[in-house]
């Protein structure tokens, strides 16, 4: 189908974009890479929006580092996340995840900020930032806010971004020397949304396990984490299955997704212990 947009404006700066958003009376939609938004518009799931194109706002792109964290601009494309040496070194979970996301042409244009703000519960990046304990940065005309990943994802396609705010980037803690990060997922075909997926981070402070495609938002599996901290993988699998309430759809039932989450956690744990993560 053909998209129906109410109007289009290209922002030249973040300030410019925020002013446009304020002026749009709640009908404004921030357009970054557009790999989800334009698809939704072409499906007429979304019509009449006033599009604020931030894709040229240079201040929102790029990766930089501080002593203990990486700052990733919201407009950094998936492909760049996959190849950026800082990310590959300090937050390998994100670069691993890129290989699972859609296809090359989509990774060229899709952005990490767009993926996080879209908050598709089946997407990889939201679960990754949850497992990494990242902080998301949003900005409105009234100032900036930092939101913990745990607080950012609220429901299906719903985040803590308020009206008038734009996600500007995220900060990810640098991996410790002995930290291990792995992502495991099962999709029917390469690049499809996962039927279920698991992110596992093992750091000095303990394990972090997040899941995607098993509920309305990415889930931090705290009981499973505790069991892994005790070295009890099977206990973690059992805890994990109790912590999630997956949906049933035409691709898979809740029971299958729950089973799969356990299999994937076992595999992730084995990879971590195997040391090739």
């Amino acid at each position: 189908m053909k998209a129906s947009a109410g109007g289009y404006a290209r922002a030249s700066s973040l300030r410019d974009a925020l002013e446009m958003l304020a002026a749009s009376d709640g009908s404004g939609r921030v357009l970054a890479g557009g790999q989800s938004l334009i698809a939704a518009m072409n499906l007429r799931l979304s019509a009449g929006d006033f599009l604020i194109d931030i894709s040229r706002v240079g201040e929102l792109a790029g990766v930089s580092e501080t002593a203990d964290s990486l700052r990733i601009g919201a407009l950094t494309p998936h492909a760049e996340i996959g190849r950026n040496p800082l990310i590959r070194h300090h937050a390998t979970l994100l670069s691993q995840a890129v290989e699972f996301i859609a296809h090359a042409a989509i990774r060229n244009r899709g952005t990490i900020g767009g993926a996080l703000a879209h908050a598709d519960p089946a997407a990889e990046f939201p679960a990754c930032v949850l497992a990494l304990g990242a902080t998301l940065h949003v900005e409105g005309l009234n100032g900036t806010r930092d939101i913990r990943a745990e607080d950012f994802f609220q429901d299906i396609f719903e985040t803590a971004i308020e009206d008038g705010e734009i996600l500007t980037g995220l900060s990810v803690p640098k991996a410790g020397a002995d930290e291990r990060q792995v992502i495991e997922e099962v999709a029917r075909r390469s690049g499809d949304y996962a039927l279920a997926g698991v992110c596992l981070v093992k750091r000095t402070g303990g394990h972090r396990v997040s899941l995607f495609s098993v509920g309305p938002k990415p889930i931090l599996a705290k009981n499973a984490m505790a069991a892994l901290d005790r070295g009890d993988v099977e206990g973690a699998v059992e805890a994990l299955k109790a912590e999630i309430d997956p949906p049933s759809d035409t691709q898979a039932s809740a029971a299958y997704r729950r089973h799969l989450a356990g299999v994937l956690l076992r595999r992730a744990a084995a990879r971590i212990e195997g040391g090739n993560a």
Partner: peptide, 11 residues
């Protein structure tokens, strides 16, 4: 995959 696991009795 689900039909195969059901045949195997895994679910």
């Amino acid at each position: 995959p689900e039909r195969i696991l059901r045949a195997l009795g895994s679910l």
